[in-house]
Amino acid sequence: MPTPEFILSLREKIGNDPLWLPGVKAVVHRDDGALLLVKRADNGQWTLPAGIIEPGEEPAATAVREVLEETGVDVAVDRLAGIGTTDPVTYPNGDHAQYLDLVFACRYLRGTARVNDDENTKVEWFTDDERPVLPPKHARAVDWARSAESAAHFVR
Results as ranks from 00 to 15, higher is better:
44 G>A: 06
35 L>K: 06
50 A>R: 13
58 E>D: 07
46 W>H: 04
54 E>Q: 10
57 E>L: 08
50 A>K: 14
52 I>D: 03
45 Q>F: 00
40 R>L: 07
47 T>F: 07
51 G>C: 03
63 A>C: 14
60 A>L: 06
49 P>I: 09
45 Q>P: 01
42 D>Y: 10
58 E>R: 02
52 I>T: 03
59 P>V: 12
52 I>V: 12
45 Q>R: 08
59 P>E: 12
54 E>A: 14
43 N>G: 10
38 V>T: 15
53 I>L: 13
49 P>D: 02
47 T>R: 15
46 W>P: 07
35 L>N: 13
49 P>Y: 08
37 L>D: 12
48 L>W: 02
56 G>M: 09
57 E>D: 04
63 A>Q: 01
41 A>P: 00
48 L>G: 00
65 R>L: 03
65 R>H: 02
58 E>K: 12
39 K>S: 02
48 L>R: 04
43 N>L: 11
60 A>I: 11
44 G>H: 08
51 G>L: 03
57 E>P: 07
54 E>P: 08
59 P>N: 06
39 K>M: 09
42 D>N: 15
39 K>W: 00
37 L>S: 00
41 A>Q: 15
53 I>P: 04
44 G>S: 09
45 Q>S: 14
35 L>Q: 06
38 V>L: 15
65 R>C: 06
41 A>R: 10
38 V>H: 13
37 L>P: 00
58 E>I: 08
58 E>A: 07
61 A>Q: 12
61 A>G: 14
44 G>F: 03
45 Q>V: 03
40 R>Q: 06
34 A>S: 10
60 A>C: 13
40 R>N: 11
